[in-house]
Every structure is written in structure tokens, then in C-alpha cells.
């Protein structure tokens, strides 16, 4: 069973790779829309990558309004 911290770490690594952002500049409480500079369609791409990586389904409405990596990790954790 993954811990929340492990999930956050994997999300940050995945986001940095996909959006070409230095991993060291990302923190769990960052607003990922601002930090990654992404729009709504790119956010959907991130959602798909997270679903594929963690083998979960995340209905859009569960992550709507979520803007920081930590809360995102908690949403994923509740689906693992």
C-alpha cells in the first residue's frame, strides 16, 4: 500500500516529466495550474496520465476544484 507521501512523490515526478518542469522546483502544496502553466485541456492530459500511472479511475468532478498536488494525491489514494 502506497503512502500519501509516496503518491505525492510519484505525481511530482510524473508532472515534471510530462510538462518539462524541474522536479526540484515542485512542492506538494503548489498550485499545479500556476506552477505547471497548464490550461484545461492540458489538465485533462495530466488526469489521464495519473489514471494510467496509478491504474485508477478519477471522475473529473472529484478533482475539479483541486489545485494542489497534495489534495490530488489524497483523491488518488481514495481510489487505490
Amino acid at each position: 500500500m502506497k503512502t500519501t507521501e509516496q503518491i505525492i512523490d510519484e505525481i511530482l515526478t510524473l508532472a515534471s516529466t510530462h510538462f518539462n518542469v524541474d522536479r526540484a522546483t515542485l512542492s506538494p502544496d503548489d498550485d499545479f495550474f500556476k506552477k505547471l502553466g497548464i490550461d484545461s485541456l492540458q489538465a485533462l492530459g495530466l488526469l489521464t496520465r495519473l489514471e494510467n500511472h496509478f491504474s485508477v479511475e478519477l471522475p473529473d468532478y472529484e478533482v475539479q476544484g483541486v489545485s494542489d498536488f497534495r489534495t490530488l494525491a489524497e483523491r488518488i489514494e481514495s481510489r487505490l
Partner: peptide, 8 residues
């Protein structure tokens, strides 16, 4: 100006 305007 929602980040996810395409979604319900």
C-alpha cells in the same frame, strides 16, 4: 474562466 470549462 474555470480551469476545466469543458467538464460538468
Amino acid at each position: 474562466t474555470d480551469a476545466l470549462p469543458y467538464l460538468p
